[in-house]
Design a protein around this nucleic acid. Structure first.
Lengths: 246, 246
DNA sequence: GGCTCATGTAAAGCTCGTTCACATGAGCTG
DNA sequence: CAGCTCATGTGAACGAGCTTTACATGAGCC
């Protein structure tokens, strides 16, 4: 039983050498497995092969480890959103939707980060660094909304970019929280979370007057998809953004 | 120190009489204060004036107490949504928006329930009763969406009601989670969460082709607010649902 | 070679969740 | 009303986690 620990210590010597990083990695794994609530400081220490007290040399307490993870999470989140936005290429609407998908992808692929960031109950605004990181991530969405708002069709009042950003964020976050993670994801949906969000954003943008003539799964090898019947009723585009009822 | 407990016992006798309910109430208060994660079985027992082991006569374990609370939460949630919907009176769109506001109001006014229901990490679908209660609450939104979809303007494909319901739910949940609760609510917003959600829903509905000629704060004493210039561009209504830039 | 300080350890105190054997008394039964 | 029974509550105990404290180790520097 105990020789294992001894051997481990023999392998690495009295000093670990990179304990802080090892703890962060261990915690990441544990959170992904059991959620931020189930994650245990002691477990992380065990996993790194050190005593339960060792982590306190690197983190004030369990919460600070969690904060560190959330911090990293927001940074990676920002990077991924930025990459997805790609400065609005090839066109603003396409890039905007890519950001939405990136949001969901992050929630799905980095459950540990997402959990620490949004579901751990961490008081984000009590930690200035964390708050700043969160702000920077949101600013990607905000900047994208800014560009989109600038493209608003003429003849209508320009929508406030900040409001658009908040709307998009709430949609992405709502879909991610409700349908794209863990247990709740098992709810039977008529469509994938990605499609759900994409349709939601498209309908929303159309509500703002943006031309959104593509369908979500977007077989791009289609004839120009907008026959000029668009002015039926009060401006309803022809194809629904929810695709055909397959 | 200990005479307090003795006195308490003297006051109520050996048997509590209504411990289960007392525990639920105590837990509700504790969760509202410190979140479902910070809530402690032992604390609830203390608050009810019984020993730490007593609760186990009424709940298999801590999780079952939490589930009970979530269950009640979903039931009250359903009631409030149903009341807000009021069978679509006075008109479908108005009632629909009232449901959205009720969603936010519940999140704000019943933080303990909301927390247990959506933020406690409870495996909802592992508990049939809980899942059913959650389903019933969602069905209110779904039924409302159904009625709304039936009113879809002619000339456009009718949007799937289920999709609409999921969209609305994700919006409400996103706004509630991000802006309407606890710390995150401190984020400075250009508008209240209620206004934010209302605008979001209105824009969305307009994207579906619904006539949404009211502005959120809705001074209803206005002249018919849709001058027939609606067909400019691709169907952009005249007034933005975000009101004037005040 | 010897010092120093960052880093790790063991032990202990606290709280919590949970179980167990035992106590109490409310309500039924005769 | 006496006595029985069973739901309900108690106290003690266990293991686990968080955190602090006093002590150990050894890497890097003079």
């Amino acid at each position: 039983m105990s020789w294992r620990k001894e051997q481990r210590r023999a392998e690495r010597g009295y000093h670990h050498g990179n304990l802080k990083e090892a703890l962060l990695q261990a915690a990441l794994g544990l959170i992904a497995e059991k959620g931020a609530a189930g994650f245990t400081f002691a477990d992380a220490a065990r996993m790194a092969g050190v005593s339960a007290a060792a982590p306190y040399r690197h983190f004030r307490d369990r919460d600070e480890l969690l904060s560190s993870i959330a911090q990293r999470g927001f940074e990676q989140f920002e990077q991924r959103l930025t990459a997805a936005w790609d400065d609005g290429r090839p066109d603003t609407v396409t890039a905007f939707e890519r950001v939405g998908r990136a949001y969901l992808a992050f929630a799905r692929e980095e459950p540990a980060f997402y959990n620490a960031m949004f579901e751990s109950g961490l008081p984000v605004d009590a930690n200035p660094a964390l708050q700043a990181a969160s702000e920077r991530a949101f600013n990607v969405i905000r900047a994208a909304a800014e560009r989109l708002a600038a493209l608003a069709p003429p003849g209508a009042p320009r929508p406030p970019a900040m409001m658009m950003a908040l709307h998009i964020w709430s949609m992405a976050h709502g879909v991610a929280s409700l349908f794209s993670r863990g247990d709740a994801a098992r709810r039977k949906l008529p469509m994938s979370p990605d499609e759900l969000l994409e349709a939601e954003v498209l309908i929303y943008l159309r509500g703002l007057g943006f031309p959104t003539d593509r369908r979500p799964p977007a077989k791009s090898a289609e004839p120009p998809p907008v026959p000029p019947e668009a002015s039926s009723g009060s401006g309803v585009p022809p194809g629904g953004p929810w695709g055909r009822p397959k």
